[in-house]
Simulated scan of single mutants.
Amino acid sequence: MPGFCEKQSKTPECTRQTAAAPDARQFSLSGLWRARKIYCGVEAGLRDQDKKKDWLAMPELSLAEDIKLDLAVAMPGVASGYDRHQWVKYGTCSGMVADDYYGRALKMLAVVNASEVQKLFADNLGGTIREEEVKAAFDTAFGPGAGNRVKMRCSKDGDRRVITGLTIGLGEMDDGGRADDLSALIAAAGETKFGCREGVVDEAGLQ
């Protein structure tokens, strides 16, 4: 999140970010996407509103109170209506209701944030980490080859290249006891190019 905020410092979620906030040391949730499927059953007016990024004017999601509270922490972009955008564009294609969609995403995020991957990033705040280190952390946390199913994104910030996100590939799994097994989901995904080969783990509050 701090890396994202280097370029989006005026958004509500970034103006309120502090070094003590959970998103300063842990991964935040961007979304849970089904490849090549968007805006399933969404009427044209709402699609247009979403594309204009007029997210806070879109209908508020009806979520259970515990999901709503957890999501506001895990996805700081809720302050900008980002949860509504993610649901309208991607969640509507998930085959789930909003509570289940975000509940599942929150469980996966919690697993990543309790793993060697989060430890690697937290231990290197302000420093540079490289592709092989990230892949090794994923392999340790989720099994051999997991790191080959991850893509890292970076953005230029002056003379630095800061890390702005990780995309984790997930395979199609049924609900026969493994649908929430993150290691199994990652193993079922195809391999991908890693993307940004090294970047700075940005610290909060240094825009």
Rank of each mutant, 00 (worst) to 15 (best):
K7R: 15
Q8P: 00
T11C: 07
T18N: 13
P22G: 14
P22T: 13
D23L: 09
A24R: 07
A24C: 09
R25E: 13
R25V: 13
R25G: 13
S28Y: 12
S30N: 13
S30R: 11
G31K: 09
R36C: 12
R36D: 13
K37C: 08
G41S: 09
G41H: 02
V42I: 04
E43A: 11
G45D: 11
G45E: 10
G45K: 10
Q49G: 12
Q49K: 09
K52Y: 00
K53C: 05
D54K: 15
W55L: 06
W55R: 06
L56K: 14
L56V: 10
A57W: 00
S62F: 04
L63G: 10
A64L: 14
D70A: 14
L71R: 06
A74C: 15
A74N: 15
M75H: 12
M75F: 08
P76F: 08
S80A: 12
V88H: 04
K89H: 01
Y90D: 03
T92K: 00
S94C: 02
G95F: 05
M96T: 01
M96A: 09
A98L: 06
D99V: 09
D100I: 08
D100P: 04
L106C: 13
L106T: 12
V111P: 00
V112G: 01
V112W: 05
A114V: 03
V117C: 02
K119S: 03
F121T: 01
G126Q: 04
G127R: 05
T128G: 04
E131C: 04
E132S: 10
E133S: 08
A137M: 04
F138M: 11
D139M: 12
D139N: 15
T140Q: 08
T140K: 09
A141N: 00
G145V: 05
R149D: 06
M152G: 10
S155C: 01
S155P: 00
D159F: 09
R160K: 15
V162L: 15
G165Y: 08
G171T: 01
G171H: 06
E172L: 08
D174Q: 01
A179S: 02
D180P: 06
A189V: 11
G190F: 09
K193P: 01
F194E: 07
G195Q: 10
E198L: 00
V200M: 14
V200A: 12
V201L: 15
E203A: 15
A204T: 15
L206P: 02
